[in-house]
């Protein structure tokens, strides 16, 4: 039996007196495509940021690919992870942000080659060859020598995806990667995501408000509300036959807002 690649076990996190993640538990299997949906402020972004080690948790444990994320075993006891451990763990995970976060002072090609050269010691020529393949894949090879400021939002996001892929992570996190885009640019990014979904065995977690995309893309959907998962299941069940009252209300609102599911 295969083990989960991500295991979140009774995780709690607060900002001051506000609890964002409440005793959260879920697992993700290797290669699984998981969609995280739910109302604003329900903690979806926070859980992705936590997996990327951009946030720390207050209690509970997270295991990624067989290792503790924020802990290490020392003489049979769990102690807080040091920087070297976090560095090893981050190598397994990549993240794409809502606002792209490209490096504005570097060309498209340099954005993609920087991390492999620095973190894996890949030689420049090899990094560039690999980067061009990835840029080709996301349809951005023609802009390899452009600066990010010269690109549209959709183009920026496709470069950001290539940049994250260049490190060959086993797990990719996508946080509302189309929310900041003009409507006509959304599809070009979703197409890249679809291709990744069908052509790679990466584990993918995506937070999205694009319900019809989540429906087609995901193997499983988690519905978040106020820091908890209140319903989960295959997209067919969640979207067409939600059982939880809050899921129903949420989906009704989405449909009322004009989205097709």
């Amino acid at each position: 039996m295969t083990e989960p690649i991500i295991h979140i076990d009774h995780v709690t996190k607060s900002y001051g007196s506000f609890t964002v993640l409440k005793d959260l538990c879920f697992s993700v299997m290797p290669g699984e495509k998981l969609a995280l949906i739910g109302p604003s402020g329900s903690g979806k972004t926070t859980i992705l940021r936590t997996l990327m080690t951009l946030e720390r948790i207050d209690s509970g444990v997270i295991r990624v690919d067989g290792d503790y994320l924020f802990h290490m075993e020392r003489n049979g006891r769990l102690v807080p992870a040091d920087e070297a451990h976090l560095h090893r763990m981050r190598a397994k995970i990549g993240m794409v942000f809502q606002l792209f976060n490209l490096f504005p002072h570097k060309t498209v090609l340099e954005n993609v080659t920087l991390a492999p050269m620095l973190t894996k010691g890949v030689r420049k020529a090899d990094a560039q060859r690999r980067a061009m393949e990835l840029l080709e894949m996301v349809g951005m090879a023609g802009k390899a020598n452009s600066m990010p400021a010269a690109l549209s939002g959709g183009q920026k996001q496709r470069v950001a995806i290539a940049r994250a892929l260049a490190l060959q992570p086993r797990i990719m996190l996508f946080d509302e990667v189309t929310s900041a885009l003009d409507p006509e640019l959304v599809e070009e990014v979703l197409n890249v995501m679809r291709m990744l979904g069908t052509q790679t065995d990466m584990t993918m977690l995506l937070v999205t408000h694009e319900m019809s995309f989540a429906h087609d893309f995901a193997d499983r959907v988690l519905f978040f509300d106020r820091g908890r998962i209140v319903e989960e299941g295959p997209p067919g069940d969640i979207f067409t036959n939600p059982r939880n009252e809050r899921t129903q209300t949420f989906l009704k609102k989405i449909i009322a807002a004009g989205q097709r599911i």
Binding site: R90, F97, N101, F103, A115, T119, R163
Partner: peptide, 15 residues
Amino acid sequence: EQHEACVALNLTRWQ
């Protein structure tokens, strides 16, 4: 967000 991109790309603090 630039700092966070560095973390997500697994650069060390110094890098």
